[in-house]
């Protein structure tokens, strides 16, 4: 499996990372280098092996259904690049 320029375009878009045209080929090459290296995992027989889902065996702890007041709106918005009257603001979504 090899990554080409178009694949880089696709995953960069999925990742929401803008890329200059002239950076696409070099990135494809870098990623291919890494992928070629990780593909040695193909040598390992994993027939019938369960994938690891957590680094420790334990049961999922659960929380009681008790609501606390939300974060004060001012605190919540304090780090926001743009806020307006209690809302976070983003460029207009065009559907």
């Amino acid at each position: 499996m090899s990554i080409d320029r178009d694949t880089v375009v696709r995953i960069a878009r999925l990742s929401r990372i803008a890329m200059e045209e002239d950076a696409l080929e070099p990135m494809a090459e870098e990623l291919n280098g890494i992928l070629a290296w990780v593909e040695q995992l193909g040598e390992v027989d994993t027939e019938g092996v369960e994938p690891m889902t957590g680094a420790i065996a334990a049961t999922l702890p659960q929380r009681d259904d008790a609501a606390q007041a939300g974060t004060p709106t001012d605190d919540l918005l304090a780090n926001a690049p743009e806020a307006d009257d209690g809302f976070f603001v983003v460029p207009r979504v065009v559907e």
Partner: peptide
């Protein structure tokens, strides 16, 4: 091919 395979190898490493 990649993620699932790696998580299986991870099981074997553990």
């Amino acid at each position: 091919a990649y993620y699932l395979k790696a998580q299986k190898v991870r099981t074997l490493i553990a």
